Amino acid sequence: MSDAPAPHPANLPAPNLLGFRITHRAMRADSRRLADATGEIAAGRQPCGPERAAAIKNYVVKLCQGIHHHHKAEDDHLWPLLVRSAGAEVDLSELSEDHSELDPLLAEIQSVAGDPAELAKPMRRLADLLDEHIAEEERQLFPVIMRHVTAKDWEELEKHVRKGGDPRFELPRIERHARPEELAELRRLAGPVLVVMLALLRPGHRRRERLVFGAV
């Protein structure tokens, strides 16, 4: 008799991975945008006065905190859920090694966050690492999640991921990086509370973006 976990029952709702997909997309896009912006500053092709430097520092620190929070939640909650649900079907060793590289790099970035020119190289390393890691994570794990994880267990995981996050920073970025049909689904799932929160948070986030990235 096999000890392998049973496949996800066909008659139960499948987990909705939309939140993870958009969060991953936002992390990749903002890391790349910051790498490009700080690279332009370091090369002398864009100006960076004190107000922009302060805005970049604030944005970088919040982004690094969000990335750390997300991968720590994966380590503490998603990985055990996958081992419990999928067993030998999932190999987390390489993805865990990527996570072990992230914290020192995030610490390095935050240590130079006040100097946009110094940020250029470590931000590019972060953008490259996230591109590779997230693409591989979604390729390997999303099919396993859809086969073996129940919608109820996935909802519990997402509750853990949301705890400790900063919705004032995260929610407007999700809105920015979601596709129209994804945003419509999020609004349908979350109801009017999301619409109100986005309306309140959107103007401040757009001002931050203009300071950090210029016209967006």
Rank of each mutant, 00 (worst) to 15 (best):
V144A: 09
S85R: 13
P9Q: 00
P116Q: 03
A53W: 08
A73Y: 04
L186D: 08
H68D: 11
N16D: 15
L17W: 03
L63D: 08
Q65E: 15
L129P: 02
L201F: 09
R147W: 00
K152G: 01
R25Y: 08
V61I: 10
Y59Q: 12
K62D: 10
A43T: 08
L106W: 10
L186V: 10
A88M: 05
A151N: 07
W154I: 04
R52W: 06
P50M: 09
L186S: 09
I109H: 03
R125H: 11
H77N: 14
D98Q: 10
A10W: 07
H177R: 13
G114A: 08
R176K: 14
R207N: 00
D36C: 03
A54Q: 10
R168Y: 08
L78G: 04
K62T: 07
H205F: 12
N16K: 09
E155A: 15
P9W: 00
P80N: 05
I109E: 02
D91T: 03
H205W: 14
V196D: 04
K152R: 14
R84G: 10
M197Y: 00
R84M: 06
G87N: 05
G165P: 01
P104N: 01
R173F: 05
D115Q: 10
L82A: 05
L119H: 03
H77V: 12
E51Q: 13
E170K: 02
E51Y: 01
L198F: 02
